[in-house]
Amino acid sequence: MNIHTYEKVWIVASMVLIVGFIATITYGAVGPGIAMIDDDGGDINPDEINDDERFAEPGVEHVGGNEYEVTVVAQAWSYTPSEIEIPANSEVTFYVTSRDVTHSFSVVGTNVNTMVVPGQVSEMTAKFDEPDEYGILCNEYCGEYHHTMEGKLNVVPEDEFDLTELSVEADDEIDAGNETTITANVTNGMQEDLETTVSLEIGNQTQEEDVTVPGDGSEEVAFTVDSADLDEGDNDWTVTVDDYEESGTLSVVTPEGNESADGGDGDA
């Protein structure tokens, strides 16, 4: 073959370029540790998503330390959950699957981006160092309202993040002269124990109780309320745990005739 010198040099330079590109990609995998979406997520029957251990209740879960798992179900044309909150300085593993057609789960302005193929689970881990707000969008055509498919990922400061849930059970009314109980149920989704204070304000009284909610558990706090301390008629109450609060109204009524002294038992 009759190859010009310049052309020989160019062939060598081209090979250097190609090998250099492959070397850069390899560096990205070994140095910063970038991993590709692969088959680790396994497969899933889309009809059985609701019965799946992981996907039955999609959302954020604490694994331990600064590790979290977020499960997301994509379907035309929304994500469940549509808004995700995680703490800064966390390592989050996403598990995403589709109920119907092929979607993507792409966190805008980041390199967190995966296809979501029905029958497959996309698993990917990313570290979120700083608080920020990101949009999530679907970048694979999934039907006529594809362009409306979006979500949000909020990375909040570590000290503002928890997985605490508060629910309160209380009667709607009590007969004058009786006592009732307002029960606060505090659930702690974090793996560590949660030490906090539950407080109840009713009328012009405040009751407080310190509790330790075990990791991945819940604790009930019962406050006894005596109608004698309350005004006749409606009394507003508020139960507070950290930043969560729940309110309701307790009516003190004068019993008439043989009516049952029990109040209703609706949740506030």
Binding site: V30, A35, T93, V107, T125
Partner: peptide, 29 residues
């Protein structure tokens, strides 16, 4: 060469967060 370096090290690696392997996962090549 220059654009590749810019795209990889500035645009891409500067665009974090990025998908990373689990702590002990050996990167498969």
């Amino acid at each position: 060469v220059l654009l590749w370096i810019f795209m990889y090290f500035v645009e891409f690696l500067g665009n974090g967060p990025t998908v990373v392997g689990m702590a002990l996962t050996v990167v498969g090549l």
